[in-house]
Design a protein around this nucleic acid. Structure first.
Lengths: 261, 261
DNA sequence: ATCCCACTACGTACGCCGTACGTAACTAGG
DNA sequence: CCTAGTTACGTACGGCGTACGTAGTGGGAT
């Protein structure tokens, strides 16, 4: 009979004890492995995260990883949880749920800038990792002054995270493409733009040509981010009187670079 | 010397002519190959889309695919464009940009339900495929009554699509997980729920326990979808009653109108 | 009408990947 | 002390994307 650790049955990795009751002491820890995987992903992108590569980075044999992580997908879950520990949730809510929410979204954005693989590796199913629970609990605390149903609050959290994710993916898409592209940096983007210009000049898309022709340049990304989120939150504020401009720039900048190493 | 078709240089697949000027007539078309890939993805999920599998479905040798598609990523682009042809953009805008936008978002949602792999395979870089241009042009037509700057309209489109995508991914995540899972359907979900209940009963997450304990059941997904999007649109409507009712939203927009290009 | 060569088709092969499985060393409960 | 359960890990299998070589085809230039 095979060892019981190999008998496959559905299991949440967080329900599994780090150390088994019987055998020898494991040579590594989950946190160590997660950190190694995060290091690889930060340096080489999500496609660099292979079991072999992470095992090498951890300093153990490839197949030994499977003692800690039953499937690769669980490694992703470990990674997402590991970087989620970077949230600074030490401050109690200010009472202004809108400002606090914008600050949380700003932290998420900063987190995704530090770990650009995060949006791709994150999945709705990861919602129950320890740090995700911590985050959710804090977010609900922030939303306590908001007088809507609990389900609506969860909806708000989901929407905010979705918009942040969308926004950051858009922000980083060109850089990511440049990183992945086998061609000299910029060439691919130039080719795309040339094609777009050719298409637009045909006159088949007059409105699009008008909008894009007006020029994108010199947009303040931070301000745009705040505006987009602010609009979303406006939709949730029940009977809010004129507070829409309250997005104070101080709370949501990318300046906060506390990365525990 | 290698054939010129192999010399690698950055190229947008849509800029490449379907039929070359010189050689023999290709045995297949781009549309045929895209349709085959879509068929595979619909039936077996995105992870079933391999060059070998799609070639077999098309009825040609594996390496022949590379005559039509220089890299796998371009196959994705073909797939996304192919299903984007399913948008019904025949009707002229009604004049009610809000209703029309909701209808477009509903089409996107339906599209993603029909092709659950779409959110995963779609990327911001695909924005210039023929059907994407068609879609963008129509969306801008719909938004013509909306009195905001062009850049803000693009922002709105991006946000709407982001929210729709987020929403659908959440909607379908359990089904997708069940499809991918090697275990009997439902077992994995049950294990996750059991773990969550165990964590929540510990008392460490009182607010989360309160919200989740109140029960999710019997939510009208369609209504929730419309509400979420409606909230987002409220944030964009200048001077709309019930959303951000003060003039601040439009003042922000006005400020942006003066921003330098 | 002829020829040339760009192009199509596709088989083979390489270096990756996730991971099933077998084996040896080890350690805690009986 | 024994022994059963666990850890560590090498080997191996099937699948992946795709570089490259070769054979055949057919349109434009002569």
């Amino acid at each position: 009979m095979a060892a019981s650790g190999r008998t496959a049955h559905p299991e949440v990795i967080w329900a599994r004890p780090e150390r088994a009751a019987r055998g020898p002491r494991p040579a590594h820890t989950r946190a160590e492995i997660a950190a190694a995987a995060v290091r690889v992903a930060d340096a080489e992108g999500p496609e660099g995260v292979s079991m072999r590569r992470v095992a090498a980075e951890t300093g153990c044999g490839t197949m030994s990883l499977y003692n800690y992580v039953p499937r690769k997908e669980d490694l992703y879950e470990l990674m997402v949880d590991a970087v989620s520990a970077e949230y600074d949730l030490s401050a109690a809510p200010s009472g202004d749920w809108r400002a606090d929410t914008l600050a949380l979204a700003g932290q998420t954005r900063a987190l995704m800038h530090r770990h650009p693989w995060l949006p791709r590796l994150m999945s709705p199913a990861h919602g129950f990792s320890p740090n995700a629970l911590r985050y959710l609990e804090h977010f609900l605390w922030v939303l306590e002054p908001l007088d809507v149903e609990g389900g609506t609050k969860m909806e708000l959290i989901s929407m905010v995270n979705g918009v942040v994710s969308t926004y950051v993916v858009n922000e980083l898409s060109e850089a990511e493409r440049a990183r992945t592209s086998p061609f000299p940096p910029g060439q691919e983007h130039a080719a795309r733009m040339a094609h777009l210009a050719r298409e637009l000049s045909g006159g088949a898309y007059p409105r699009l040509a008008g909008v894009l022709g007006a020029g994108f340049a010199a947009v303040d990304l931070d301000a745009q981010f705040e505006r987009a989120l602010g609009r979303l939150l406006d939709g949730f504020a029940p009977g809010r009187a004129g507070g829409c401009q309250s997005a104070s720039a101080s709370s949501v900048t990318l300046k906060e670079n506390r990365s525990p190493r």
